[in-house]
Design a protein around this nucleic acid. Structure first.
Lengths: 228, 228
DNA sequence: TAGATTGTTAATCGATTAACAATC
DNA sequence: TAGATTGTTAATCGATTAACAATC
């Protein structure tokens, strides 16, 4: 009753009103995005040795309203202790179960420049079960060099690597001008999620998801509230 | 009547219903965030020589519903041409005016490692009027080196530089363990916006905004929809 | 007990979507 | 004219917020 999966019943009238049902139904886009943010904060809180966290603290770090946070969790069960907060370890396990991201996932990185090396050596993907299993570059001088434990290969090997290593995500840390052509290769190799750190506006078929990371966008809008 | 600022009147009943009023009132958080995303796409579309763009195309790149996009713009004026779309140049100017980000803003970067160098040499900030005017590092071997046109300085110079150069944003591209102490220094020097690329959960006073960039978060949630 | 924080309700607000007349 | 896309309405859905009893 405490950590098991809750199956919604007719006794629970809220189950059909919001999208937060554990088994069967997909999470709504908003809920999935927020749970991912909570997970990131909780992972870091755990590293810092924090054992318990309140919805108020989670709100400070994620800028999500504390009531919303409690609501997001309570849709899946009673994870907290009144007067105390949530157990960090238990909450991480619960969210991982809900997001079905308990496993390992392999990613391929394109570009062994400064950005590529920064990504490859960062903990941020590893913390969430993403492993950089291949790094590609077109610069012949970089081929064969190692970045961390991984050898840099030529992009022509892409197809074989995607199949051998079961790669689900392609990360583009290449110049804007090179991005579309690599995206095309990834699509052809069957990769369905592309993470784009270049400024390129990528054209892909509808079954492929592109996420373009745009730090300057967040800065623009933070600045608006600073200026007004 | 075409490009001038529209002042809402009693004739327009929608003006008070949504938050999208041009003069005086602050934009809602959501509107400001979306306008920033449109601006990023439009800036890139302009670079690619695109003269006109439809709400449908903007939707493909931003994942914002096309009706929502037209609605966001129509709150400020009639920017489009039916049957044609929006003029890219004109739209960029309009959004910049609305977000009040037409000017130049100076930022200070911390960390001259791979990530710092990637940020400093990227166009993404420059495209939106953000200029990296100072780079700091604590590693004595890096002090005095140049990254692009900018000399790397020691963090002890922070205070003087913030005042001299009118720095409004501090960008942290440092190891997680070093982030909080630099954030403290930035707060003390009066900087109100901190852009955090480390995984640290930063503690700052309420008047300071921290944006933590978490690429893995977006990946987690993209993966959820891929797996389900 | 006293203080803190969850879990939950209810009311409000903003986002989403379909639909379509207006018009380029 | 014919095709395309805007500007706008109306209906629905999800997010936000305040409030507070339950309870650790």
């Amino acid at each position: 009753m405490t950590t098991g999966e809750r199956v919604p019943t007719a006794v629970d009238p809220s189950a059909s009103r919001d999208g937060s049902i554990s088994s069967g139904e997909r999470l709504s886009l908003g809920v999935a995005a927020r749970l991912s943010r909570y997970l990131q904060v909780l992972t870091q809180a755990k590293k810092m040795g924090k054992e318990t966290i309140s919805s108020r603290e989670l709100s400070d770090y994620t800028h999500v309203n504390p009531t919303q946070i409690r609501r997001d969790f309570s849709g899946f069960g009673k994870f907290g202790k009144r007067g105390v907060g949530y157990n960090v370890d238990a909450l991480v396990s619960q969210i991982r179960k809900i997001l079905r991201t308990s496993g390992q996932h392999n990613i391929a990185l394109f570009g062994a420049g400064h950005l590529g090396q920064a990504i490859a050596s960062s903990d941020i993907f590893a913390d969430h079960g993403f492993r950089v299993v291949a790094i590609f570059d077109t610069d012949r001088r970089k081929i064969g060099q190692t970045v961390g434990p991984t050898k840099v290969r030529h992009a022509s090997e892409l197809r074989a690597v995607v199949e051998d290593e079961d790669i689900v995500v392609g990360v583009l840390a290449v110049p804007t001008a090179a991005a579309q052509s690599i995206a095309d290769d990834l699509v052809e190799a069957g990769v369905k999620i592309i993470f784009n750190y270049s400024e390129a506006l990528l054209q892909v078929p509808p079954e492929v998801t592109v996420h373009t990371s745009s730090p300057a966008v967040d800065l623009l809008y933070a600045l608006y509230f600073y200026l007004t």
